Simulated assay, not measured.
Amino acid sequence: MRDLLTTASDTIEADFAALQAAIAASPVLSSSDEPDATVYWSNQPLALLNVIVDAHIAPEVAAARAQEILAPFFERGLPFQWVTTPRTTSPALEAALAQAGLAAREYPAMFVALGQPIDPRTPEDVFIDVAWPDGVEPVSRVILEDLGHPAVPEEGSALGVLDTLDPADNQFFVARSMRTGDVLGASTMHTRGSSAMLANVSITAAARGRGVGRALTATMMNRAAATGCQSATLITNSRAYPTYVDLGFRTQFTCVAWAWDPRS
């Protein structure tokens, strides 16, 4: 049972740290055993696969330690991001990241208490299903295309990282057309005890504006509640923010992704 004194912000941070640790453990990614941060990278020019996160660095050593962690990422020359939350940042660290040339991008971190099932308002010609472990490829493809990376994951490629996550605490959802069977959207859900982090809600270009994203999110919320979860968390962007507010999510803090991209 979750500690009753745990705040919504604490829950988001713990969910996010657990999800990032699960991704870092994927055999298709490389990682380093840092004592104070979760660090993983790939050979792909995608910042979401080259990440520093959950770093707990004392302010007095932030400048020097940040340089140590950043150096290998600069040497690889691929886009990457250092993600901070209230418990994993400080003015000293933020100054070090800014001085290193990383640009800050802010994202709302949101929480909702789960209870009675809610109407997902799924469009009449759409059905949403859970992808079995051997059927995750459409999820990966839609998510990557939504990020502007159209490559189809190859076996053993870092682009197929979702396929390697443990199905015991990771579920993948697919929205399809009832007429054609075409994939219209996809999303992922990572559970940690009595909380679920919803992520990667992605919609194909042809299906945007039809409520598929809302339907996917509500379906995940209902599934999480039905399996005993008491809360759901997510980190979003301004485009999807109104949808999550409509579903009851409320912002608890701002998550900051400090990004570096040699192409910009």
Rank of each mutant, 00 (worst) to 15 (best):
L5K: 11
T6S: 10
A8E: 08
F16P: 02
Q20S: 15
Q20L: 12
A21I: 10
S26H: 03
S30N: 10
D33M: 11
T38R: 01
Y40V: 02
L48G: 11
V51D: 00
I57G: 00
A71D: 11
P72H: 09
E75D: 12
R76K: 04
G77Q: 00
P79S: 04
R87G: 15
S90F: 00
P91C: 06
A100K: 08
G115C: 09
Q116H: 09
I118P: 05
D125I: 06
D125M: 08
I128W: 00
D134I: 04
P138D: 07
L144V: 05
D146H: 08
P150S: 12
E155Y: 06
G156N: 07
S157K: 01
A158C: 09
A158D: 01
L162R: 13
T164M: 08
D169Y: 13
T188Q: 14
T188D: 08
H190Q: 14
A196C: 14
S202Q: 04
A218T: 06
T219A: 14
T219S: 15
L234K: 04
T236E: 09
S238F: 12
A240I: 05
P242Q: 09
T243W: 07
Y244K: 00
L247Y: 00
V256M: 00
A257T: 05
A259S: 12
W260A: 02
W260T: 01
D261G: 10
D261A: 10
P262M: 12
S264L: 13
